[in-house]
Design a protein around this nucleic acid. Structure first.
Lengths: 349, 349
DNA sequence: GCGACGCCGGAGAGCGCTCTCCACCCCCGT
DNA sequence: ACGGGGGTGGAGAGCGCTCTCCGGCGTCGC
């Protein structure tokens, strides 16, 4: 068992391992990939050779022939030219929403040896970059989280025939798989709870209207309240950020001082609403009951927030699962998975 | 100019473009990579051919020969077997700290066409995965953010001769580039401000002692206070999470009811401390002045938090810059960049 | 006892690209 | 008019891997 020098400088290759083991390249490849039967003693020899050479297969070479990369793009897509001066990436990554999605994706992909590549698409240029990235074969598919409904990226991906899975139903129907929450059902859960605890003057702070999920939560809530005999529900529009929840609550109370229950379309805004309520001396939940949505910032609120839980990690994992299925089988059928939310009762309602 | 069919199915290759343009593969490659002179009319023809074929260079093939990938690993490294039952990825990505680092990294890398690959290293197995990933040539280097000082990953990377840059100075000195904050100077800023506004009974809530940055903030604060004639500063240890700030504040006030100023080692804990103070009826800053650290959650606090600002995005961008330098030139010297913090005065102190 | 079949290892052809040579041509100097 | 040099395009050798095909050998059936 002479350990020949690894022929030249640089990393050892299959060839080197084969030479050390005294077999052919093909056999080493078979052992590594566990394909076909290889005699146990030869397997043993190959493993020893791999250990002594410190061989690691070259990813580029492998993916050149297999046409698979073991990577997927995790794309956050939205409009960069928003109001704020802050760059898109700051706003995106600061959002706990992104963190939870990333967490779910990583949790699913990691045990499978797949790695997510972080990408941002906030302009025509960067959207094209995403498409090129995939067409280059840099990743096997894309997981897309859009910050608003009219995002053009999903359609680009579909047109290019690239495997992709969306977070949330796109505004215009296109043939693409996605995972979404039953927002209306979630809003109804909140309405039921508010009514059950005896609230008579109920209002809501909604998300931005250009986000389909926000529309669904609003209309779902209104309908459920109508079903309970409350056809009119005061509503103000927020932007899903804490400050807008605070401002919205102030506006609501100014116009309707007798409000005793509020459904806020996400926890971040609910956090703001809670601050406003406290500033105005309203007790929660005694004077005003508050229900949030997402269960993202709920435990750090004062009082802890009753909220509609969206199991983001599970949903993100499901996206990853669907994407791998699409990548493995081009004929895998377009699928949409709708997840049911649950009400988490804490102290605010 | 007959547009031959792209020879078979599958993506068009350099060969196809060359045939359509009526030149050789080499020439097309030259045009694409802008290397050497190519006659203007031929360039033109090549560009037309690229457009008509819809050609995109194959990343794997390219990186097989160039030995560069255009990707870097963004690794969050720490211990998975922590107290909480939550998986490592949840804790990591929920932290606004990670979001800001990611934002800075992406901001720098994106214009340069480099993509970050998200990785987690929370066990011996996953640390090896990171090393293998890089040795496979899946990425050109690693950006490592460790959650505690004794992380073994940096040493593994150095020993393997892989380009890597760390967030924060490692606990044991190893020859690796890193970017860090002047924590002691930041803590001194807080001490000076507290003393200047007339606080006489000052305490601190520190971070976990196994994090070097936490130690530095604590000892830097103590030393600065000693310099102001306060040799003894009550201190309790937290874990950088909001709940521990709240608990710490309660403990501090129980043991030292006359406290009129607190330096909290990060904003998340300061947020908790603020809640505790409010629950106990202490006014901020009139009764107790509070200074946080990081400037991460400061504006959503009540009152808005005076804090020591750590320019995380800039620091992360600097990490990326150093990494690319190391990747481009193996002889690039090991460098440590220490960034100066600033005090941001808001309302809490 | 002989042919056929199955099992297992080796040879070699690419995957799509870059890059080093080399050949060619045009222009200039003497 | 002829040799040489600079600039430009083409040919072809790989980069490290997978995978199909083939050949050799052992075994089983009749």
């Amino acid at each position: 068992m002479s350990t020949d020098l690894p022929h030249t400088s640089g990393a050892p290759t299959l060839e080197d391992v084969a030479r050390v083991a005294g077999v052919s390249r093909a056999t080493v490849s078979r052992v590594i990939n566990g394909i076909r039967n290889v005699a146990p003693d030869i397997q043993e020899a190959v493993h020893r050779a791999i250990a002594t050479t410190g061989y690691v297969p070259n990813r580029a070479a492998r993916s050149l022939v297999t046409r698979r990369t073991g990577a997927v793009a995790l794309v956050v897509s939205g409009a960069g030219d928003a109001k704020g001066g802050e760059p898109f990436e700051s706003r995106v990554f600061a959002d706990p929403f992104f963190g939870r999605v990333a967490s779910g994706v990583v949790g699913y992909l990691r045990p499978r040896g797949i790695h997510p590549v972080l990408m941002l698409a906030d302009s025509a240029q960067t959207r094209d970059d995403v498409v090129s990235f995939l067409r280059q074969g840099s990743a096997d598919g894309a997981l897309v989280v859009s910050t608003h409904g009219e995002d053009p990226l999903p359609k680009l991906l579909v047109d290019a025939g690239l495997p992709a899975v969306l977070w949330a139903r796109p505004a215009r129907p296109i043939p693409i798989s996605y995972v979404d929450l039953a927002h209306r059902a979630g809003a109804a859960l909140a309405a039921d709870h508010l009514v059950a605890r005896g609230c008579r003057r109920v209002a809501t702070i909604s998300g931005p209207f250009d986000v389909p999920a926000a529309q669904d939560r609003l209309s779902g809530f209104q309908e459920a309240m109508a079903g309970h005999g409350h056809p009119y529900v005061p509503a103000v529009e927020g932007d899903f950020m804490p400050a807008s929840g605070e401002a919205g609550m102030h506006r609501l109370l100014k116009e309707h001082p007798d409000i005793d229950g509020v459904f806020v379309a996400n926890d971040l805004m609910a956090q703001g609403a809670l601050l406003a309520l406290r500033d105005l001396g309203r007790r929660v939940p005694e004077d005003v009951a508050v229900i949030g949505f997402d269960d993202s910032a709920a435990v750090t609120c004062r009082p802890p927030l009753t909220t509609v839980r969206q199991p983001m990690e599970d949903m993100a994992a499901e996206m990853a699962r669907l994407l791998l299925a699409h990548a493995a089988d081009p004929d895998f059928q377009v699928t949409s998975v709708i997840v049911q939310p649950t009400l988490v009762v804490r102290e605010s309602a």
